[in-house]
Amino acid sequence: MMLIKVEQLSYLQVLHDLSMQVEEGDWVTIIGKSGSGKSTLLKLIAGLISPTSGHIYYQGQDITDLDPIKLRQSVSYCYQQPVLFGETVADNLNFPFKIRHQQPQHDQLVASLQSVQLPAEFLTKKITELSGGEKQRVAMIRNLLFHPKVVLLDEVTAGLDEESKQAVHQFLVKAHQNGTTFIQVTHEIDEIANAEQKLVLENGGLHHEELSR
């Protein structure tokens, strides 16, 4: 099933008449030079910015016709250097529940921490005491707690320590196995080498480099 369809998308001087399609369960890797518009493309898909022209469809509906809140809860954008808010890790994991007017279950939060190889004690840990890698792991579970259908990864493993990189990678692979669709932007050699579908963003447009599926 077609999940995301991008049609003749242009954004300022960055993207020109870009088109792409993403099927349910795909893991699309987008590569390209810095400033080529990779992050911009992901932000456009999440509806965080609006295109100059062109259309983006999610499950067949133009995203401008969709409630942006519902869209972003289904198509989740993950930042390269996430900012944690509040005081503790728990504040961050509670937030996705709070915006849905739900009460978090302690066991569920602990299990989510363990899924990125962080111990239960982390729940009460101050965010100022976390390393960059730990912050990204917390941010990842914050984004994926409610199982969005599409996850947009904006160089999420860039600059992380090896342990965190592995933890994030395993967490994402598991989510993918459970049916989550990924569109990823990366510079990491390993991630590019292992990519299922590779697209190169160049001169404002996308082209396939190879299709290994």
């Binding site: 965080l48 972003r72 993950c78 930042y79 808010f85 509040g86 937030f95 996705p96 915006i99 914050r142």
Partner: peptide, 20 residues
């Protein structure tokens, strides 16, 4: 700004994103 953007990306409404 970044904090507000992240909250919006998580699917928060305007008020939830700006409350703090």
């Amino acid at each position: 700004r970044q904090q507000v953007l992240e909250k919006l990306a998580l699917g928060a409404n305007r008020q939830q994103a700006s409350h703090s």
